[in-house]
Design a binder for these strands. Structure first.
Length: 422
RNA sequence: GGAGAGGUGGCUGAGUGGCUGAAAGCGCUCCCCUGCUAAGGGAGUUUAUAUGGAAACAUGUAACGAGGGUUCGAAUCCCUCCCUCUCCGCCA
């Protein structure tokens, strides 16, 4: 959510940002400003009415105290009609405020000036590449490897739950667990505090990070208890400090959190979703930062570098994309995607996305920090995957396979697995 | 799940219809005194929002778990929900 005062003084900028993000209609900006005008003048009127009514009520109190019942009755008669008026006024104010809020929630975040303007994924900028994509023709896609050894059981996953909920069996289960441990340890060593978070959140949390109203359909819902299954650890972790004013000296706050993630991925099909490429449940280690506004873009770079370091340590060639305005999503102001090379499929797979939300999420969540004695200011929030598991597993299976079909264990994971081959 | 108690400011804790945005204490900040490692005096110390102001700030309004209701007036009375604690039940 943007600051209404910011919109008021930067109308053109916000409209241009909306167009750049691929919205066709920017009339909502005009609308929200009109609603805001109405709201402000009505609030003023309502406040004055209440003020008058309050002072009358005080008078009545005093008269009653002095035993002057009849005089009090006279004033009571005067105020009773105000009561109704105030009530009507309050209802109007509330309606306007809700309308304003609702419009405000539909205006996307403004991209940072360093973000390339573009419409689709083809306009994303290749920010950097690392390693040489392997073009060996004999390399098999990961699903053939896992099938040969029975390392991932999709069929039984379907039987037990449904498509997109596989079982990992033996060495691949062990590999995933090793990766999770390795990722968490690396974050821990970089100064991130480890959190274990709830896997279900309530509606306020889902709204806080922007999953609703924007992306409701991506989440699994537990209707009886009004919970949402988390689509990413970002949701519980960023909401950890919702409605708080954190101390200036506590910033930056840095968390690492491993969770499974659930996504409905409605409408996905075809070879893009083959094997482990896209699942309804997957594991991810997520980093979240809560920082002062002036440092957030530096913090974004260090977040990206941290995620990249993991890929380098695993010796998996990757590229980093700077997402263009049209491909970056509603809530972000700047976003990098990390894509690992999948040599068995000869394609790039997204394994991380690192974003700065500036104060967009913080404002929704009322997450502020104490700036100086008196003033509070919205923090900036960031998050990044470091990293998403199943695609890393695929990339490892494909990149570390040998022609005899055995799969080596990456050097950095050997302490966790204890042998040279899976 | 059943029975009971309760949810007030950074913390402890008063307040059962008007003079309470909230006593008192603790903590914290600033100033003064004193002079030596401890004590005395004074002032300040929630948040949001509207208006004015460059700002400091001033004024109004709102908020005592959340939402509704009664009343001229609610932290205080009534209803619903959420949460915490104690006891019982169940359980990894």
């Amino acid at each position: 959510m943007l600051d209404i005062n910011f919109i008021r003084s930067n109308k053109e900028l916000v409209e241009k940002a909306m167009l750049n993000k691929g919205e066709k209609d920017t009339s909502i900006v005009e609308e929200v400003l009109l609603k805001d005008e109405d709201w402000r003048s009505l609030v003023h009127q309502a406040d004055e009415m209440r003020s008058e009514s309050n002072s009358k009520a005080k008078e009545i109190g005093m008269l009653m105290g002095q035993g002057k019942k009849e005089e009090a009755q006279k004033i009571i008669a005067e105020t009773s009609s105000m009561k109704q008026q105030i009530k009507e006024m309050e209802e109007k104010v509330k309606a306007l405020q809700e309308a304003r809020e609702e419009l405000l929630l539909r205006i996307p975040n403004v991209p940072h000036e360093s973000v390339p303007v573009g419409a689709t994924e083809n306009d994303n900028e290749v920010f950097s590449t690392w390693g040489e994509p392997n073009k060996d023709e004999w390399r098999k896609p990961h699903w053939e490897i896992t099938e040969r050894y029975g390392w991932v059981d999709f069929e039984r996953g379907v039987k037990v739950t449904g498509a997109g909920f596989p079982f990992y069996v033996g060495p691949v289960a062990q590999l995933q667990r090793a990766l999770i441990n390795y990722f968490i340890n690396e974050a821990w060593n970089a100064g991130y505090t480890e959190l274990q978070a709830p896997y279900f959140v309530n509606e306020n949390s889902a709204r806080g990070t922007g999953q609703i109203p924007d992306k409701e359909d991506m989440m699994y819902v537990i209707p009886r208890d009004e919970f949402f299954a988390i689509p990413t650890a970002e949701v519980p972790v960023t909401n950890f400090h919702r409605d708080e004013i954190v101390a200036d000296q506590d910033l930056p706050i840095k968390y690492v959190c491993y969770t499974p993630c659930w996504r409905r991925e409605a409408g996905s099909y075809g070879k893009d979703v083959r094997g482990l490429n896209r699942l309804h449940q997957f594991d991810k280690v997520e980093l979240v930062k809560i920082v002062k506004p002036e440092t957030s873009y530096d913090e974004l770079e260090s977040l990206r570098e941290h995620a990249e370091k993991l890929l380098k340590a695993l010796e998996l060639p990757y590229r980093t994309l700077l997402m263009c305005t049209g491909d970056m999503g509603f809530t972000q102001s700047k976003k990098y995607d990390l894509e690992v090379w999948s040599p068995g499929q000869q394609r790039w797979l997204e394994v991380s996305s690192c974003s700065n939300f500036e104060s967009f999420q913080a404002r929704r969540m009322q997450l502020r920090y104490r700036k100086e004695e008196k003033n509070t200011e919205m923090v900036h929030t960031l998050n990044g995957s470091a990293l998403a598991l199943p695609r890393i597993v695929s990339a490892i299976l494909e990149a570390y396979q040998e022609e005899n079909a055995k799969v080596r264990v990456p050097e950095v994971l050997k302490p966790f697995i204890g042998r040279d081959y899976l």
